[in-house]
């Protein structure tokens, strides 16, 4: 396995913690991982992104450069900026609640995920990133729902355990949406 994932969106959409959770889960299941954030002015508003690599061999360069296997785009500028980083046959998960048009790039698989709508439905807009995560693990299958929930449990610790059901629900809804989309395509 050699997952190279770019998570991107605007500040506050939780793209950094989304990426962190993917790498953390990867580490817990015994994979080699790296997480590389954009930093500096970019992180103070505007778009934020991080590069996550989950691999069964040692990670060489932590930079993803025209070889992303998946992009999780939570807003339009991110989708436009990163669709060209995908390899042929890579996956573009895009937040269709905020992005009206599908990506223009040919030769990739685009999966529309209405992250904001679903997050609102489950009760908190802040879990839109978790909906995206659900869609990603449903399609790319780097690890299971249980792996992610276990990782969440560790990251949150006892103090924030009460938030786990909400996040788990969001991830599950993301999985459902992606499975439906995959069936539909």
């Amino acid at each position: 396995m050699n997952e190279k994932v770019i998570c991107a969106g605007f500040g506050g959409q939780g793209v950094m913690s989304l990426g962190r959770l993917i790498s953390y889960t990867g580490m817990r299941v015994g994979m080699e991982v790296s997480w590389l954030p954009s930093y500096g002015p970019e992180m103070r508003g505007g778009t934020a992104n991080c590069h996550v690599i989950v691999s069964d061999t040692l990670v060489g360069s932590p930079v993803i450069s025209h070889d992303a296997t998946a992009v999780l785009a939570l807003n339009y500028p991110s989708m436009v900026k990163f669709e060209h980083e995908l390899i042929e046959g890579g996956y573009m998960f895009y937040n269709s609640s905020l992005i009206e048009e599908a990506p223009g790039r040919k030769g990739i698989t685009a999966i529309a995920v209405p992250s904001n709508e679903i997050a609102s439905e489950v009760g908190d807009l802040r879990v839109a990133n978790m909906v995206m995560l659900g869609a990603y693990i449903a399609v790319c299958r780097p690890f299971t729902l249980e792996d992610v929930v276990e990782a969440l449990r560790e990251v949150f610790g006892p103090g924030k355990e009460k938030f786990i059901p909400l996040n788990e629900t969001a991830i599950k809804r993301g999985i459902e949406v992606a499975e439906k989309a995959a069936v539909g395509s």
């Binding site: 962190r20 790498s23 580490m27 080699e32 991982v33 790296s34 997480w35 590389l36 954030p37 930093y39 990670v59 932590p62 930079v63």
Partner: peptide, 10 residues
């Protein structure tokens, strides 16, 4: 460098 400082790894 910035990358080594900012990136996460196990």
């Amino acid at each position: 460098d910035g990358m080594l400082g900012q990136m996460m790894e196990p």
